[in-house]
Simulated assay, not measured.
Amino acid sequence: MADTLTSPLSRRRLFIAGALGLASVASLSTIAPASAADKDWTEEFLTRSETREGFVVDDMDDWQIENAKFLIAAVKGHDLGKDAATIVLITAIVEAWLYNYEPAVDADSGGLFQQRPSMGWGTYDEVRHKKRAVDAFLGLGDHSSAPGLLQAVPDYDDWEPGAAAQAVQASAHPERYAEQVAAAQLIWERYADDVEPYTD
């Protein structure tokens, strides 16, 4: 992570530079994700638009890592643990590869969970707000009328994680969630101990 933040032309910055122009590279440090040390989940972080590029645990970029940490922090903030976090993570991996995905690729879907405003998950902005999106997915967001995890699967810890995710998402490709369980559990093992609960 340090290399990405200090090198002016890292792989990530070169990718963005190609899209924005080299003149924009100098300003990228101002939109870098919060460091693991300070846990400063800023409003800019919670609402920033990101690009879906790919997902492999060992190749996660800074945004994917910070989003994974934030999801763990938000789950912990609701006094939920590894089982709930695994379901949250596999869903965000499958739906948006751990990016707060902005462009609508499936009707009006958006955000980490590709939630649809037309299906009761909140407004256009709310489904793209990371805290509101994870709260809605868990069934703990007052802004959402869609049944979240705690409504759809109150005994989720007795379920196979992929099946629990599908109970919330009603995806046309339910098998994809189970494929990411190992990745989600590895992410939890790597980062959970260093992430404090987030309740704001």
Rank of each mutant, 00 (worst) to 15 (best):
A2N: 11
D3N: 13
D3W: 10
T4I: 12
T6V: 15
S7G: 00
P8C: 04
R11Y: 04
R13A: 12
F15E: 13
I16F: 05
A23N: 13
V25W: 00
S29V: 05
P33K: 01
A34D: 06
D38G: 10
L46Y: 12
T47K: 10
S49C: 01
E50G: 10
R52D: 08
R52S: 11
E53N: 13
E53A: 11
E53P: 01
G54A: 11
V56A: 14
V57Y: 02
M60S: 06
D61K: 07
Q64N: 10
E66N: 10
F70D: 01
F70M: 08
L71M: 15
V75C: 06
V75H: 08
D79P: 06
L80N: 02
A84S: 01
T86V: 13
T86F: 09
I87F: 01
L89K: 05
I90D: 02
V94R: 10
E95G: 07
W97Y: 08
Y99Q: 09
Y99K: 13
Y99W: 05
P103I: 08
P103G: 03
D106M: 07
D106Y: 10
D108E: 06
D108P: 04
D108V: 04
S109G: 11
L112A: 12
P117I: 05
M119D: 12
W121P: 05
T123Y: 06
Y124I: 14
D125L: 01
E126M: 07
V127F: 10
K130I: 03
R132H: 04
A133W: 00
V134Y: 09
L138P: 08
G139S: 05
G139A: 06
G141M: 01
G141F: 00
D142M: 08
S144K: 06
S144E: 10
S145R: 12
S145H: 10
A146Y: 12
A146P: 03
G148H: 06
D155R: 12
Y156E: 02
D157K: 15
D157Y: 11
E160D: 14
P161K: 03
A163C: 00
A164T: 08
A165F: 04
Q166Y: 07
H173M: 13
P174V: 11
E175Y: 13
Y177S: 11
A178P: 00
A182N: 05
E189R: 08
Y191L: 09
V195I: 15
Y198F: 15
